[in-house]
Design a protein around this nucleic acid. Structure first.
Length: 428
RNA sequence: GGAGAGCUGGCUGAGUGGUCGAAAGCACUUCCCUGCUAAGGAAGCAUACGGGGUAAACCUGUAUCGAGGGUUCGAAUCCCUCGCUCUCCGCCA
């Protein structure tokens, strides 16, 4: 949520910034909401003030044993009016709240202006792309002989679900464990285990709700109407650790990580990436979250980028880093780096990690604050990033580590996690 | 699932219809005193949102005692619904 005072005081600037990310601000509605709100709020508060005043006097008169029916009647009159005005105020306030909840974050000045992903800015390319003496296959062709069973996924659940068996399943598990170990042991994150079903408030806090409900899976508890949502990313539970709280300065930065499954309906991507396990309804991811002092967040963003990169470096996977343009960054982000890993079969880069600074956008929704050295409560900055997506990392390994006969060499750093298995052999 | 107890400020905890945003203690901040870090004294110390003020300081109002609704001139206090926590019983991986 953006600061309402920005809209009150610098609406032109806000409108321009939102335009650059393709969001049309309905400023007419806002201005009229605001003037209604102001009038109503003043009126309601004045009525409440006189009611409180008179009621207090009734108490005093009665304690003296005096008659107070005159006063009681006045208060009754006030209450009739108050009820009406207050209802109007509540409606307008909830309109304003909805209005604010649906406005995306403002992009940081270092974010390139652009319409879509074609205008993202290349930051760097890292690692060497292997030369193959044969035609590199894609992970689907390779995977079918390695234990990647798409048909079984479809049988059990439907499209966009996959089943993995045997040594490839171990590789998948190894990747998750390895990533988690690096982020905790080398990069200093606290390992967490969190719920995978979360409530409405949590998703509103991180920005998925109310706007993106269709992207989520929803569950019902037995026959009851209580709804819980499957997390679309570990960012949701981890960032919500600080919802409704005021943390001490000395606790900052808070660095959290968790290996969680993620569930996404992929409602908007029919027909996209239908081949293989690039885009699934369910995938595992090691998530990184940092919650920090506002003046540290851009330093932290770069640090988190390096934390995600470290995984790719250790796996010796070639990748590039992109600075997403205004048209491509997510709803809550002020700035986002994407890491894209090299896929030799398609000779292109595919997203494998996304690291964002949300500044105070989520913190305002979450009421996540800290007590600054001047004793004032201020909003924190929240950042999140994948460190990294397990399924896509496995796809990248299958493709980048393939041998001519269809076997997969296990990356050096994963062998110990695989109980010494060095090669995953293809069914001949 | 059944029975009972509870939910008050950063924490502990009083408050069962009126001047209560809320005693007291702890913690914290500032000051005073004290020859070392200990003890004592004074004051301050919730959050959100308004209005005023060029702004900071400050002044002022409203709301908030788990959430929502109700009774009442007036609710932390009474009533209803819901959520959560704890104890006991049952069931269960």
């Amino acid at each position: 949520m953006i600061d309402i005072n920005l809209l009150r005081n610098n609406i032109d600037e806000v409108e321009n910034k939102l335009n650059s990310r393709g969001f049309k601000l309905d400023r007419k509605s806002f201005v009229s909401f605001e003037s209604d709100r102001k009038n109503l709020q003043i009126k309601v508060q004045e009525l409440q003030e006189s009611r409180n005043e008179l009621s207090k006097r009734i108490g005093i008169e009665k304690s003296k044993g005096n008659e107070a029916s005159e006063l009681m009647k006045s208060v009754g009159d006030i209450n009739v009016l108050l009820k009406e005005e207050n209802e109007a105020l509540e409606i307008i306030q909830s309109n304003i709240q909805d209005f604010l909840l649906n406005i995306p974050n403002l992009a940081h000045e270092s974010v390139p202006v652009g319409l879509n992903e074609d205008e993202n800015q290349l930051i760097k390319e890292v690692g060497e792309k292997k030369e193959y003496s044969f035609k590199a296959k894609d992970h689907v062709d390779l995977g079918e002989k390695l234990g990647l069973d798409f048909d079984l996924g479809v049988k059990l659940s439907g499209a966009r679900f996959t089943t993995i068996r045997s040594n490839l399943a171990s590789l998948h598990r190894a990747l998750g464990q390895f990533m988690l170990d690096i982020q905790t042991l080398e990069n200093g994150y606290e390992e967490c285990y969190t719920p995978y079903l979360v409530n409405y408030e949590s998703l509103q806090g991180t920005g998925q709700l109310p706007k993106f409900e269709e992207d989520l899976f929803v569950t019902k508890k037995g026959g009851s109407e209580d709804r819980l949502y499957l997390i679309p990313t570990g960012e949701v539970p981890l960032t919500n650790f600080v919802r409704d709280s005021i943390v001490d300065l000395i606790e900052l930065p808070i660095k959290l990580t968790a290996l969680t499954p993620c569930f996404r309906s992929e409602a908007g991507s029919y027909g996209k990436d239908t081949r293989g396990m690039i885009r699934q309804h369910q995938f595992d991811k090691v998530e990184l979250v940092q919650i920090c002092h506002p003046n540290q967040s851009y330093k932290v963003l770069d640090e988190m980028l390096s934390h995600a990169e470290l995984i790719l470096k250790k796996l010796a996977l070639p990748y590039r880093v992109m600075n997403l343009c205004t048209g491509d960054i997510g709803f809550g982000a002020a700035k986002t780096y994407d890491i894209e890993v090299w896929m030799p079969s398609q000779e292109c880069y595919r997203e494998i990690s996304s690291i964002s600074n949300c500044e105070d956008f989520q913190a305002r929704r979450l009421k996540a604050r800290f007590k600054d050295s001047d004793k004032k409560n201020k909003l924190l900055h929240t950042l999140n990033g994948s460190g990294i997506a397990v399924g896509r990392a496995m796809v990248a390994i299958i493709e980048n580590y393939q041998l001519e006969n269809g076997d997969i060499r296990v990356p050096e750093v994963l062998i110990s996690y695989m109980n010494g298995v060095e090669v995953i052999e293809a069914r001949k």
